[in-house]
Amino acid sequence: MSEKLYLYPIWLRVWHAINALVILILIATGISLQYSDANFELLKFDISVTFHNIAGYIMAINYLFFVIANFKTGNVRFYRIKLKGLIKKLIKQANYYAFGMFKGEKTPYPITKDRKFNPLQKVTYVFFMFVIVPFLIVSGLALLFPEFIIPRVAGFSGIQLTAMLHAATGFLISLFLVIHIYISTTGKPISANFKSIVNGYHE
């Protein structure tokens, strides 16, 4: 029996649960809006708009809570990236996922109380949580208040550009979600990581 590490405090688990729920709503309603059709409606358009807007507001407030709590509790230290040797570390971790784990090798960067994420996770999380998600929230809020969007940008409609970038970042988040859920199954047993994010303990 390995040592139990309390890695996911209650505030983080609550944030994660809310975020997971609203992201699912946002992806479903977002796809429904983007591909709305008179002959085939995934979800009713007006219902999709209402749910997308409400879920968007919740996500924005939840994200603000995430940033504040990270700095307040010091959890932000898990996201600090050391650039020295980063590429080598990323290749090592990628090699593990691509080949090593099939040969029965041990993970090169096991979870400890000071290292919650492996290098590949860390770079991905930083990119998504501090670049993609804020962009998604800002562009979403802009579309809720289109009067603040610059009308023309380089000959294009400002709303069109904002909407396209919003949809593109939403698409990246949906890719992240699929990979994130799959990578979570690489724990031992398969359900280990899912249990951790519910009870807070990593075994």
């Binding site: 983007q34 591909y35 409609s157 069109q160 396209m164």
Partner: peptide, 16 residues
């Protein structure tokens, strides 16, 4: 429509 507006659901790009 894109010349002056953006219409959710009507302005998807086929290549994208």
């Amino acid at each position: 429509i894109l010349n002056e507006a953006y219409l959710i659901g009507a302005n998807r790009n086929e290549y994208v």
